[in-house]
Write a protein that binds this DNA or RNA. Sequence first.
DNA 1: ATTAAATCGGATATTATAATCTGATTTAAT
DNA 2: ATTAAATCAGATTATAATATCCGATTTAAT
Lengths: 143, 143
Amino acid sequence: MTIIFSKKCEYGLQACLYLAALNTMEVIPSGEIAKKLKIPKEFISKILQSLTASGLIYSKKGKLGGFSLAKNPNKIKLIDIVTAIDGLELFERCVLGFPNCSPDTPCPVHDKWGELRTKAYQMLTEETLDAFAEKTLRKIKNL
Amino acid sequence: MTIIFSKKCEYGLQACLYLAALNTMEVIPSGEIAKKLKIPKEFISKILQSLTASGLIYSKKGKLGGFSLAKNPNKIKLIDIVTAIDGLELFERCVLGFPNCSPDTPCPVHDKWGELRTKAYQMLTEETLDAFAEKTLRKIKNL
DNA sequence: ATTAAATCGGATATTATAATCTGATTTAAT
DNA sequence: ATTAAATCAGATTATAATATCCGATTTAAT
Ligand code: FES
Ligand code: FES
């Protein structure tokens, strides 16, 4: 096994990308999100609830309720979702599992790995959700 | 949560790096490896057993038994250990969890992520265990 | 031969993640 | 008012990863 992000986080990222791609202020019920992304409805529901608590997602209760992004997609970055769900451990931990990942106590691959995870962090940081709309829609079409 | 390699794989990598750093052909009992790396003895024992089955590790049974690398450290790469324990899923899977990661059906970060994981693969591939000996010993000293 | 110390195989326990279920509440339409 | 469809909170289940335990076997030294 090998994971970058937990399933929770993967689904959270997918759902936020999807909501951003829809480019609407209307709320979308979790059932529809689950159907479009082909992921379990109850699970994505829970995840969106927690993102609502984090303030990234807005939710509307009751009939005609659902979820939408809490702010403009050009204000949300992938790293925000990762931080809210998985945290930033990935960018602080030794890739070989040794304790105390730091330049002072480097493991044999610390330098190379440090570069890569910095770039991964940049990948999640430099663009906002609106930049991904087209590619998201194209990817979702093929599910 | 966020993982690159499973604990199994992390410990396997650590143990192989340690055995390589010792630069000896003598076998080392799992108890000593566990003590030096501060990891659970029973667990690393199992992991080394499976690596023995994979042919990366040599094991000697009975009193004065233990484990050593099955070949010269300059013939073993980190990727060999990763492949044996976690497999190569990390380098084939979509980082956002979408199905069908390929240039034909790219997710929004496919291109950037593809570059990074290629470099991660290189990191695990281009050097052999002997190259890591010094740094390994220095890291282990601080545990 | 006996003992001690190790791997080995298989089962078991523990913990974390993933997924589902249940019932309460909210809200819009009839 | 009643109904329908949604979020929400909390409990529960299922599955996988992590860790430990036990008994058998192997091997070296006494
Ligand atoms: S110590 Fe291993 S990646 Fe930093
Ligand atoms: S499709 Fe997402 S990384 Fe390739």
